[in-house]
Amino acid sequence: MQAKTYFILYIGALVAISTMKSYEPLLIVLALLALISGRSVFSIARRSFLLVALFSIFITLSYSVVLYMNNQSFWHYFLTVNLRSFDMVFLTLLFSRKVNIYEAVAFSKDLSFLLILSVSKIMTMQRAFADYTDALKSRTLKKPTRSQIYDYLGSAIAGFLDKNIRESKENFEAMKSRGFSV
C-alpha cells in the first residue's frame, strides 16, 4: 500500500516539476531531492547528469548560442530547462531506488507480474548479449566483410528471438508446474 501511495506522490511531483517555469524553484526542488536521497545523492546525481547531458546539453547549448548571437540573455533558458530535466530524472532515479517499483504498479496484478518477468528476462538477455559479443570477438581473427557482418547480424538477432521464444515455453511450463494460472 505504501509503495502505491509513493507512486501517486511521485507522479504528482513529476507533473508539478514539469510545470515550473524558472530555475529558482527548481533549485529548491533539487536541494529537497538531495536531502531526501541521503547518502546516495552523489551516485544519483552522477547518473542523472549522464542521462540528461547528451540530449539536454546539446539542445539547450545550441539554442543558447542562438540567443547569444542575437544579443539576448540565455542564462534563464539554459538553467531552467536543464535543471527541470535534471530534477525530473533525479526524482525518477530516487523513486526507483527507494520504492519497490513492482509493488508500486501492483494496482494491476497482470502488469506487476509482467514487469517482473520482463525485467528478469531483460537482465538475462543483457548477460547473454555480453557473453555473445565477447565470444564473437575472441573468435574473430580478421576484419569481417560487410556481407559477413550482415549475415552475422541477421543470424544473431534471429537467434536471440528464437532463444527468447524457446525460453518463454520453458518459463510457461515452469510457472504452470508451480501453480501460476496467468
Binding site: D110, F113, L114, L117, S118, S120, K121, I122, T124, M125, Q126, F129, L153, A156, I157, F160, L161, N164, I165, E167, S168, K169, N171, F172, M175, V182
Partner: peptide
C-alpha cells in the same frame, strides 16, 4: 493464448536486446 505472460516478457526482452545491436 495461455502462454501469454511468458511469451510477452520474452518479446519485450527481445525488443530490448534488438536496441543493443
Amino acid at each position: 493464448n495461455d502462454e501469454s505472460f511468458a511469451f510477452l516478457s520474452s518479446l519485450t526482452a527481445f525488443s530490448f536486446v534488438v536496441m543493443m545491436f
